[in-house]
């Protein structure tokens, strides 16, 4: 587009962007500061911007006050298992819809895609009842199974697998490669970048998920980090420095992934928007 910008326009653009970035980032930096404050500092009516001496011990104390190690393990198991399941099934289903012709294909595809229009909270109550009947409340399977696959992921993978040339698949068939081998060894390698987007986004979203782990767990030991941390802060609502330390730990994996490749996240979001 028009590349020339007046100096005034340039200054205005920078001021706006600096202001907006300050609004998004300073609260998060303040969270890090809170995490390193003493309890007295974090409760002072005269809030502290930079703690006198950084209290790295807060991160250890967190583990003594709450079963934070459990929270971390639970979050890793749940988000990890769901991510693996998505990586296994979303592309497989997407491949079938992209490359096979069979009776009721369009009907089945529509039934899968229609679930995108069904927000999770609608299923919250019936799933709670179902898990309760199965005795799966407060278990890993109860936290994991409702999210094993996702219509959006399937749709995304179908869009990426469609352009893979049919000749490649037919040639492999002639060479005697089994049907699953074709999927695994021929099709999947063609869509590695899309798989990476699917995996990272699934993990980050499940790592952050709040509503279902809140509903489906009852003992402190089974909580994931977002739920454990929130209920911890309700219980000890005055211990802000430790709450902030927990929040820092919760954000750490995502922040590291984002630092490693922010372009990847930007492109991933753009892909989901473009379809």
């Amino acid at each position: 587009m028009l590349n020339r910008m007046s100096t005034a326009g340039r200054v205005l653009a920078y001021v706006t962007l600096l202001g907006a970035s300050a609004i998004t980032v300073l609260p998060l930096l303040y969270m890090v500061s809170l995490a390193l404050q003493t309890e007295a500092e974090s409760l002072s009516g005269d809030p502290v911007l930079i703690p006198e001496t950084p209290m790295w011990g807060n991160f250890l104390e967190l583990f003594e006050r709450a079963p934070f190690a459990n929270f971390i393990v639970n979050s890793l198991v749940v988000a990890g298992a769901i991510t693996v399941s998505h990586l296994l099934f979303d592309p497989l289903v997407g491949y079938v819809f992209a490359k096979f012709r069979f009776p009721f294909r369009n009907t089945l595809f529509l039934l899968v895609i229609a679930t995108m229009a069904i927000p999770f909270f609608v299923k919250m109550i019936p799933l709670y009842v179902m898990m309760s009947n199965l005795g799966w409340l407060d278990t890993y399977q109860g936290l994991i199974t409702p999210f094993l696959m996702d219509a959006f992921g399937i749709f995304l993978m179908r869009q990426f697998i469609q352009p893979v040339p049919d000749e490649l698949i037919d040639a492999a068939r002639i060479d005697g490669v089994g049907e699953f081998g074709i999927y695994w060894r021929i099709v999947l390698p063609q869509v590695k970048p899309a798989l990476a987007v699917l995996g990272v986004f699934t993990f980050v979203f499940q790592w952050n998920e709040f509503l279902w782990p809140l509903v489906a767990t009852s003992t402190e030991e089974m909580r994931t980090i977002p739920v454990g941390l929130t209920l911890f802060s309700q219980e000890y609502f005055t211990i802000w420095n430790l709450t902030a330390a927990g929040a820092v730990l919760l954000f750490l994996p995502t922040a590291l992934l984002f630092l490693a490749s922010q372009r990847f996240f930007v492109r991933g979001i753009a892909i989901t928007g473009m379809k």
Binding site: T24, L28, N208, F210, P226, L250, F251, T254, A255, V266
Partner: peptide, 13 residues
């Protein structure tokens, strides 16, 4: 990147 960061945090944070 800076403007996108809050989107990646959990609602708990």
């Amino acid at each position: 990147a800076l403007l996108l960061v809050p989107y990646l945090t959990s609602v708990a944070i």
